[in-house]
Design a protein around this nucleic acid. Structure first.
Lengths: 250, 250
DNA sequence: AAGATGATAAAGATGATATCTTTAGTTCGA
DNA sequence: TCGAACTAAAGATATCATCTTTATCATCTT
């Protein structure tokens, strides 16, 4: 094979059928990802220009381009144009991953019920951990959000966005980036069909619950925070399920 | 380019001129994703060949290629070569998404603690829902897995894989695809450093707990199933955290 | 002789290469 | 500070290679 492999020649996997059958660009992608998992590459590391990568792989620039497009879509690299530019290993980008999950869930056609149960799983734990880990700064952010609730309570769309940000702020107060990333993806998917059946009494009730939640988190009562969030998400779930049924059965 | 703002319900992109700052390929990616979220595209739908897409976008094949590479990496399309080939909207592929999350979590450098707390969030809810929704077939699968536990209990690596499959089977018994997808990704990340501190007594204890869990799920007791799984994952968490500390502090 | 099977050629589509122009950043010097 | 030179990606065009499907034709069997 004329192609200079990224892997060392002594690698027994180098000529596996699955590997040799793959495209050149996919092998570059694999190589970079493997290096990333093996900690041989870290965020900020420079991969070089398209030309550099092409030369290293013994392939043309298009191949390097294809690989970089894929790595970029996966959020592995960031690409800059101009002098000193090229590809670098990116820092983590939760939003990107959230979109990937959103795509997958849409393709799989998951139901509202499934979505909301998963959201309950994430958010109850987030509330619990927020009660344990929230800093003074986190609490300030949550209280700011409560003020925003009052300011936007008359505007359905704005109020919905405020509530989403509040829930995200709770997750961030848990100081668990996995939970934040997962909640972010779920919100991405469930966002469009959100602002219905939002009457004034419901809005006020939500605000009351959110207020109570902040107090409980501030008082460091993890068990109560979990229970409160559990009830809250169950209520949201009930509303969404009914919304979904009315929209599909008519 | 890979960041896709797919929430633009009232954005008629039909006559929109080139938006500065965005590449041509990124706009194709945007359009396809938007169409997907708006249900104008569904799995199996044909997007056409690279040439078709290029012509439709009024650009060259390179642009269409770049867009398809990105969409492929996101798991949105599947590409076939040969006559009648081209790009089609893919069915959901959880494995692909799991890989994407693994990359993101690696880049973000999340701690074992964060991973395990998220896993606890997912798995406790999965156990709860499994108790409510498990079919006879699900229970048979779980009992098969228990038999496999006994067969592999002497082999650390095999036993670890068996346990992972058991936990996944519980998630599948919940009939919630979101939870399955999320657990799959977490397992993908935490898989490599799994088989340490697995002594014979620990293995036996795990088997006991798994057996009890199946019984509880079979008896449809959701609350007990959740509590049991909660304790179980907390035990796993304790083991993993200690493993992590011994490996990093020395 | 009719139908089934196998080989082959043609067409369609991605994979890959080479070369070029344009556009967007960076660096450096006046 | 501003602008020019440089660098590198974005994009275009042409060409070849490789893989797949499909249609055709020859051969073999019944």
């Amino acid at each position: 094979m004329a192609v200079i492999p990224f892997r060392k020649p002594h690698d027994p996997w180098a000529f596996e059928p699955t590997r040799s059958g793959a495209t050149l660009s996919s092998r570059i992608v694999e190589e970079v990802c493997t290096a990333l998992f093996d900690k041989r590459l870290a965020p900020g590391d420079r991969l070089g220009t398209e030309k550099d990568i092409a030369e290293q792989a013994g392939a043309s620039r298009i191949v390097a381009r294809d690989a970089l497009r894929t790595l970029q879509a996966l959020g592995v690299v960031e690409i800059k144009v101009g002098a000193g530019g090229g590809a670098r290993i990116a820092r983590g980008n939760p939003a990107l991953f959230a979109e990937a999950l959103a795509v997958q869930l849409t393709l799989a056609g998951v139901s509202v019920r499934e979505m909301m149960d998963a959201q309950r799983a994430i958010e109850t734990t987030a509330a619990e951990l927020a009660a344990e880990n929230a800093t003074a700064e986190d609490l300030a952010t949550l209280r700011e959000s409560l003020a925003e609730h009052e300011a936007t309570i008359a505007d359905d769309a704005a109020y919905t966005r405020t509530c989403m940000r509040f829930h995200l702020a709770v997750a961030e107060a848990s100081h668990n980036r996995v939970l934040v990333a997962q909640l972010l993806s779920l919100q991405h998917v469930s966002w469009p069909a959100q602002n219905r059946t939002l009457t004034a009494p419901v809005a006020r009730h939500i605000l009351d619950v959110h207020r109570e939640l902040v107090d409980v988190i501030a008082s460091r009562d993890a068990a109560v925070a979990r229970r409160l969030m559990d009830d809250h998400v169950k209520m949201i779930r009930a509303r969404r399920v009914s919304e979904d049924q009315t929209s599909t059965c008519c």
